[in-house]
């Protein structure tokens, strides 16, 4: 067995909101391997976003351990986590989070400027099929196009990991399929470990491996012997 890219064991996360304590994670243990395409399924409030935030270095666990290769993420300081995100992680958000005052090209360039070994901006946009639209502002792009720009932005720095939080959540099915195709291509072409969280079970057919979460725990794991392509999906 190869060494996992991510190794998490017995993660818990408790949020305190005033007097109320919310236990978002109740002991999660998982490994993610290089080049894997993993879909994390679960209903709202199941803890999947919390898990993604911890893996992405946006949050730290209350207890338990989480390692990215030899980087210890639990108990890491703000500075180390920023460095970790900068060097290794690409994010794709549900609402794209593009900078409205910058064009597609500039949104991608914003990230390549701070990366050590980025790919050319045009190549990143071409890989999501948007080379023609590079001079458009987000307001001039459709939702699907904006999400593909976000993917181009995420992959342009050649991250080891791509973390996608409901990437099709704000899109209709046809558009969502094109976005997923872009993610699939990135995973295949660059070997980027990809973790997609969604509550859309259909998307799970795309994955090498599917994890199911409920109530802060991983409650099931399945492996797709035959993966569907994005084009075959419908919901």
């Amino acid at each position: 067995m190869t060494t996992p890219t991510f190794h998490a064991s017995d993660l818990t996360k408790t949020y305190r909101a005033g007097e109320v304590e919310v236990q978002a994670l109740r002991g999660v243990t998982l490994d993610l391997y290089a080049g894997e395409f993993v879909v994390l399924l679960g209903a709202s409030g199941s803890g999947k976003s919390t898990l993604l935030n911890i893996l992405g270095g946006l949050d730290v666990p209350t207890s338990g351990e989480v390692w990215y290769r030899d980087h210890r993420l639990h108990g890491a300081g703000e500075r180390e986590l920023t460095q970790y995100r900068r060097e290794h992680v690409g994010f794709v958000f549900q609402f794209y989070n593009l900078i409205p005052s910058l064009t597609a090209h500039e949104n991608v360039a914003l990230v390549t400027e701070i990366a050590d070994d980025p790919m050319p901006v045009a190549a990143a946009l071409a890989s999501v099929g948007l080379e023609e639209r590079c001079d458009h502002f987000p307001a001039q792009l459709s939702g699907g196009e904006q999400q593909r720009v976000a993917i181009a932005r995420a992959i342009a720095k050649r991250p080891d990991v791509l973390l996608c939080d409901e990437p099709t959540g704000a899109l209709d099915a046809a558009t969502g399929v094109r976005v997923l195709a872009a993610l699939e291509k990135v995973n295949r072409d660059y070997g980027t470990t990809t973790l997609v969280i969604t509550h859309n079970a259909d998307i799970a057919r795309l994955a090498h491996r599917v994890l199911r979460m409920a109530d802060g725990r991983i409650v099931g794991e399945t492996r797709n012997e035959v993966r569907a392509t994005a084009a075959e999906l419908s919901w």
């Binding site: 992405g56 703000e78 920023t82 995100r85 989070n97 900078i99 409205p100 914003l110 990230v111 932005r153």
Partner: peptide, 16 residues
Amino acid sequence: SRDLASLRILGFTRSE
């Protein structure tokens, strides 16, 4: 704040 926080997630440091 939304844009700035997005940039922080993308790996921009606090100073940047």
